[in-house]
Design a protein around this nucleic acid. Structure first.
Ligand SMILES: [Mn+2]
Ligand SMILES: [Mn+2]
Ligand SMILES: [Mn+2]
Ligand SMILES: [Mn+2]
Lengths: 134, 134
DNA sequence: CAGAAAATGTAGCCATAGCTATATTTATTA
DNA sequence: TAATAAATATAGCTATGGCTACATTTTCTG
């Protein structure tokens, strides 16, 4: 049996990356739907202040997930795209799983946004199987 | 349909309380199994430095979840007990649900530790039903 | 095209949760 | 019981992600 502390440290680890994942997934969506991802739209979608979005985008830029010129909209690097598409795939599996469990769209949507970051590959596979059999 | 930002703000909200929930649940376990909850054991169980555990316990104390005398072990207030027992109940439902989904104990244990904080009452009920029918 | 509005950026604040190093207190044991 | 070990506490640092207020730049519009 694994050490108890392992579970907690995995959760802490997930929390380090989840904001990044949500940002990148969202930027990809905005690029897809509107052709560009702007700070205003990111802030509005996440329900946070524009200054907060701007600061986080700065971090994502220095970490190489995102590119931008001053006062211009935001684009994903290759590294950023990869995480965005993986996150989107995972998000959809979790969302559909919750629907298949019998939940309404709103609840499935809300819960998926948090659960997605704490689902291991094994669990994701079980959810995907469950979705297929429904 | 709900606003997209609602999901994100609920997740942010969950993250404000989840460390508290894990601490209180753990303290209850330690009180139950060892008769007392000490900083060393909390730090060891969570896999963090003792100084970090001590600081968080200070916050829990000022927030009224926990009582302690200097250099002595930690006890739950009534407010703290309530959250501990609710958290434990919820944790067990999620853990058993993952087992019933077909996961091994280690994976179920690891994923439950994160997922538990992002499961609404509605979703929890669905999981509980699923457990009953298995 | 000038002025107003909108978007972006910066500064400075707060809270949380990590860490290491060190001080203090309590507990063990020789 | 005195010395040592263990546990607790404190100080000071980092990183993250919130916020408001304000500065700057871009965009819109009359
Ligand atoms: Mn999410
Ligand atoms: Mn997502
Ligand atoms: Mn947990
Ligand atoms: Mn989480």
């Amino acid at each position: 049996m694994l050490k108890k502390s392992m579970s907690f440290s995995k959760v802490r680890n997930a929390h380090k990356t989840e904001n990044t994942e949500d940002y990148l997934e969202l930027i990809a969506e905005l690029l897809n739907s509107k052709g560009e991802a702007r700070i205003v739209d990111i802030a509005e979608s996440l329900g946070i202040a524009q200054a907060t979005a701007n600061k986080t985008i700065q971090r994502l830029q220095t970490q190489g997930f995102v590119k931008r010129e001053p006062y211009r909209s935001i684009f994903l690097t290759f590294k950023g795209q990869k995480i965005a598409s993986e996150s989107k795939k995972r998000h959809n599996i979790v969302f559909n799983f919750l629907l298949n469990l019998g939940l309404d769209k709103n609840t499935a949507s809300e819960d998926a946004e948090g659960i997605e970051h704490h689902v291991s590959k094994k669990t994701l596979r079980k959810m995907d199987n469950f979705n297929s059999k429904k």
